[in-house]
Design a protein around this nucleic acid. Sequence first.
RNA 1: GGGCUAUUAGCUCAGUUGGUUAGAGCGCGCCUCUGAUAAGGGCGAGGUCUCUGGUUCGAGUCCAGAAUGGCCCA
Length: 1048
Amino acid sequence: MFKPVSSRLNITLLESEILRFWKKYDIFHQSMDSKEGGPEYVFYEGPPSANGKPGVHHVLARVFKDMFPRYKSMNGYHVSRRGGWDTHGLPVEIEMEKRLGFSNKQDIEDYGIAKFNEHCRDSVFTYIQDWEKLTDRIGYWVDLDEAYITYENSYIESVWWLLKSIWDKGLLYQGFKVVPYCPRCGTPLSDHEVAQGYAQATDPSIFVRMPLVEEENTSLLVWTTTPWTLPGNVAVAAHPDIEYVKVALGEGANKEYLIMAKPLLEKVLGDQSYAVVKTFKGKQLKGKHYRPLFTFMPIEKDAHFIVLADFVTTEDGTGLVHLAPAFGADDMQMSLEYDLPILMTVNESGRFINDIRPWAGMWVKDADPLIIDDLAQRGLMFKVGSYEHTYPFCWRCDTPLLYYARSTWYIRTSALKDRLVALNENINWYPEYIKHGRFGNWLENNIDWALGRERYWGTPLPVWECETCHHQLCVGSVAELEELTGRNLSDLDLHRPYVDNVHLVCPECNGRMSRVQELIDVWFDSGSMPVAQWHYPFENIDTFKEQFPADFICEAVDQTRGWFYTLHAISTLVFDSHCFKNVISLGMILDKDGQKMSKSRGNVVDPWDVIDKHGADALRWYLYTAGPPGQERRFSEDLVGEVMRTFTLTLWNTYSFFATYANLDEWSPSQDVKPEYSDLDRWLLSSLHALIRDVTEAYETYNVTAATRPIEKFVDQLSNWYLRRSRRRYWKTESDSDKAAAYATLYEALQTLAYLLAPTMPFMAEEMYRNLVLEVEPEAPASVHLAEWPKYDPSMIDEKLNRDMVTVMKLASLGHAARNSENLKVRQPLAEAAFVVGNADEQSVVADFADLLMDELNVKEVSLLGSASEAVEFSLNPLPKQLGQRFKAMFPRVRQTLLVLPADQSARKLLDGKRLTITLEGEEFEITPDEVEVRAEAKEGYAVASEGAYLAALVTDLTPELVDEGLVREFVRRVQSLRKDADLDIADRIHLYYSASERLTKAISSFQDYIMEETLAKTVTSGETPENLPMLRDEFDDEFVRISIEKI
RNA sequence: GGGCUAUUAGCUCAGUUGGUUAGAGCGCGCCUCUGAUAAGGGCGAGGUCUCUGGUUCGAGUCCAGAAUGGCCCA
């Protein structure tokens, strides 16, 4: 016996029971332990940070992460799924600053780094319970008890080891990074802060001559709005593909040549007269040297020549851009590319340094007019004006921000660009376009990783520098630090400020060494997890080797340049290996109007609202099926409700139907009656095995929609076609081989669905499995998640049968349409339905599925209308695909020729499988039946419906017997609804009493046996009805009836 | 400003190597079926496939440009 299944589903109750069951028997750990010794499948959890509440977008990532480990586990793989938490970084600090009411770094220093960091450490798990609860509730199986935590000493030590490896390869270096900087506050501003302070500003707009060294009397014309940056100039950038010109201006002694971009000639020179001497592409300027405007500072490297850059535009200026690497991000980038010197002409207060003699100590903006004068006096100023634009100011003090180079640490990832690109080829991306698009482009244009952060709560950069001789060394472990200091540091917290208090003796000069101030980018933390989660190489050496690289990772698309990149970069740098083999990059979740979900918009959907209402499975299923995973998706609770109605409940009720009737019949998979499968059964099983095949294939290629949507379609066909057409087979009293086949087929389908749904709807699958499988097979694994993934049997798949059933469905649909067109209710039996089908192949379906069609359409007979039929008129539809490909440009004429042929006659030929011959411009062509569709239409006077090559026609004449039978079916339906209203059980027997009008009474008595069978009536009595029984009166088709039933 | 991506019915999405009448589900209206179902079936309303050019006998599909949304980076 199966556990009874109510047709009413209480989803939250069901899911909570299953959660209890999983917990009680620790099924999650069993699912790992039981596969010990099997092949490893490696999954990496991208660590979330628990200092904010989890939202529906976290659910998205988590359910996608969950399905593949579950699938692989069912296929015999051992999948350990270690959780992790990201705990460092600026967001944590900002949250804490807010709470403590701080507004800048000085506040933190005054408060004390130790105390501040202690608060940060405490705050990172503020919402950990929300995370754990939600993770558990949605059925995401991940090992949070063993989760790695990025702030732990062991984790940091592994990160140090990685940094040391990179240091040893000479790839960790100190350089400059240009940041928006407030000279008054003495601090860089974050992007967020900069965005608050944009305002309209007027700056000088000057055009300066930079004379070329090797071309007489010829200057580059260069534009800038920041004259104070000119003493820092080291190069000029031109666009490689823009056209430049050399123009001649002036007369006699004033004659000179200028070089600038051609499209900007008019704008810059206005109505001055000039002559274009030469036109050429920007790339031809590359490497030409010019005389520096200023020579205040000594320069050791080659400088003052033309470089090529894509960021040069022809919107403003001259198409030649002055580069001062200390004061512009693009400029700095070019200096790395061309190895240019970096001239720090300005100090941290925004004033010129002493080397800049005429203006030393002057606030740079004040120096602008003086610099302009100086250049003008030397004949280098071509034109002076002013320029209005938006410019960022400090949101605190309104000082104009300077873009200013600060010393910081970099990883020279650009040195390994080719490896980064090559190793990306080993990765399977889903969606595929990310590989060579967003990610590949990013790698191709790789720039060095700016690693340093001047902050407090994070992994300290383990570089010590000598205060005397500036010798630097990188420390890769606590043991190494102990050796260098000769102290026991096993209790040392590796965070600031404690680690800053560790000083070393310089091996070069015996001076005192201190740690540099910086922390590292928090992305380096998470990108280190393959190594650091195991405290490799200090422990778990074998485990690390077994768990690297990952088979599968999955996060949202915003991680492309975040975690995906840092994983890839670190493993390329340290191991020369890719880090993950398969990756799914998920689209973002938007609200129902396509807007980004954000707290400020107030459109954030709380996952709990959805889960409490529709359950975790429905939410999961929605997320898998709603659209391609890589695409952003609009989310609303209603759409999850739709999953519930159209999929979950359909499946549930099929399952409930099965359990109910199987129990009534005491059917079990081991019963002795040998099943005799019908075509309908064979069709369902054929579809089922094709489904197993397709879903398995989809999992193997990480195609989530293909692994889920077909299941939905199958369930729809199972319920609304197979079961609807088979219902009577379960109702009938005798337990024959046909009934056995019906049960066996439905059972196999439902049981298989439990397995196929296990990775995606773990709750529903568990419920079905435990009832359908465990109840009859107590030795089976206790959970579907411990069971084996089903294998398909190719011999069960009958493609022809699958196609035929599609045709049958189409004919049935047309039959219904035909009834509808004449307002003929399905309850009214008709004498005959006749069909036309498109081609010879399909003609057998009408005979093969005659019973099914008769039953579905409530007709006494079905037949096939041949090509000779009088009832049908044919026309030709030349098929553009076939004929177009064959005749190309001739197609329109071929089509015309076919359309003017005598349609009826040609169609009959084609229907008999013969070819047509047409003549076109004196040439003869044979047209095959595949190239023309024959369309059928009924002549007047029949109830018909047609679509393309298919047609259904109904014989509408009614005999008195057919009318009687129709009346009886109306009567039966009313008895049934009375039974239902009276809350009778489906198997309850009744006494049936009625009184009715004369015609109906006659009909009822002549179909008495049929009525008794349909309504489970032991007796049918006409006349007076006993008192106090459920009763119904009704009128239909000019007849009157009163019905009462009595439960026996 | 740059890169990537998307835009098809009121909503959520399909749409094969280009094939002439662009589909499904939900929602809406009418009808119908039902002792598994919160369901099923039929009909109907609802589309300048974001726009502009181009290639082609033929473009939702290919190419170029633009607009708008999203993500990332400046």
